[in-house]
């Protein structure tokens, strides 16, 4: 049995979900990691693979190659802008987004960015495209800011997503996270997504929960993982129980298996 909750947006919803999160913190041990690694090794492919919540939601189906666009760039820039505003509250969000874009362009001109990076793409984009990127990033930043401001607990904007390399399996797990809320020693992680949650959104959320726990040096899972879909006004959450962590790990392994099958040559 899983702990998936479905709620509609209302005032103080995130605060309630944080305060009502379970008190017990689940810990993933080395045995769990070894067991997971063995399963991924059995489903390993020739090349390196990266799995995330979206690949779980898509049941391991092949995804389109990633390409930067104003929409794909907005999240990175918006999170950076919000971190700037936390440090310098007098900044407006628009100014913070502009600073973030300028920072990326500066990195590109310094010559230390690799081809395919956001800075590289921005530097090669025309002015109207950068304007559209700014507009998209501002929209995202405002949404995220509204979520953050509705939380009364100590919170921080995540510096980056979580990554976990599964040993000897040529597999990297990438977990999305946007806001980290601390309720005493308990950690609650919030992920903000666009659009509306699909039928497999709960599976994706559990995958992110598991990756977050694996990426934690001590293996401590968040007590609750909250997914927000502001466009749809919907919120889902799962608790960091062992059952949910196991379910998340199973879904990740399944998507790896499905991906390997899809790539394997069809026997005559």
């Amino acid at each position: 049995m899983t702990t998936l909750l479905h709620r509609r947006f209302d005032t103080g919803l995130v605060d309630r979900l944080v305060s009502e999160a379970p008190a017990t913190i689940t810990n993933l041990t080395d045995d769990h990691r070894r067991s997971l690694s063995a399963r991924f090794r059995a489903a390993a492919m020739v090349g390196h693979q990266r799995l995330d919540a979206w690949s779980v939601e898509q049941a391991g189906r092949a995804q389109r190659a990633f390409a930067w666009s104003p929409r794909t760039a907005r999240r990175v820039l918006a999170s950076g802008a919000l971190r700037r505003v936390e440090v310098q509250p007098s900044l407006t969000l628009l100014d913070a987004v502009r600073d973030e874009v300028a920072d990326q362009l500066l990195r590109a001109t310094s010559g230390f960015t690799r081809s395919g990076s956001l800075a590289h793409w921005l530097a090669s984009s025309a002015n109207p495209v950068i304007g559209l990127v700014t507009s998209e990033a501002l929209g995202w930043a405002v949404q995220l800011d509204e979520v953050v401001r509705s939380i009364s607990y100590p919170r921080s904007i995540a510096e980056s997503d979580t990554y976990y390399d599964v040993s000897l399996a040529r597999t990297t797990l990438r977990g999305r996270r946007d806001v980290i809320v601390m309720n005493d020693e308990r950690r609650v992680v919030i992920r903000v997504s666009s659009g509306a949650p699909g039928k497999s959104a709960g599976h994706g959320l559990r995958a992110d929960l598991t990756i977050d726990a694996l990426a934690d040096p001590g293996g401590f899972a968040p007590v609750r993982f909250i997914g927000l879909w502001p466009d749809a006004g919907v919120c889902l959450s799962v608790d960091g129980s062992m059952n949910d962590l196991r379910a998340g790990a199973r879904d990740l392994v399944r998507s790896a298996v499905a991906r390997r099958r899809a790539r394997a040559p069809i026997a005559a």
Binding site: S125, A126, N127, P128, G131
Partner: peptide, 22 residues
């Protein structure tokens, strides 16, 4: 573009360029 204060010099070309990017 207007909402974030971008200077638009050639409306059609600029709009087309930005639209094509996404």
């Amino acid at each position: 573009l207007l909402s974030v204060g971008v200077q638009v010099d050639a409306p059609f070309d600029d709009a087309l360029c930005a639209w094509r990017s996404q």
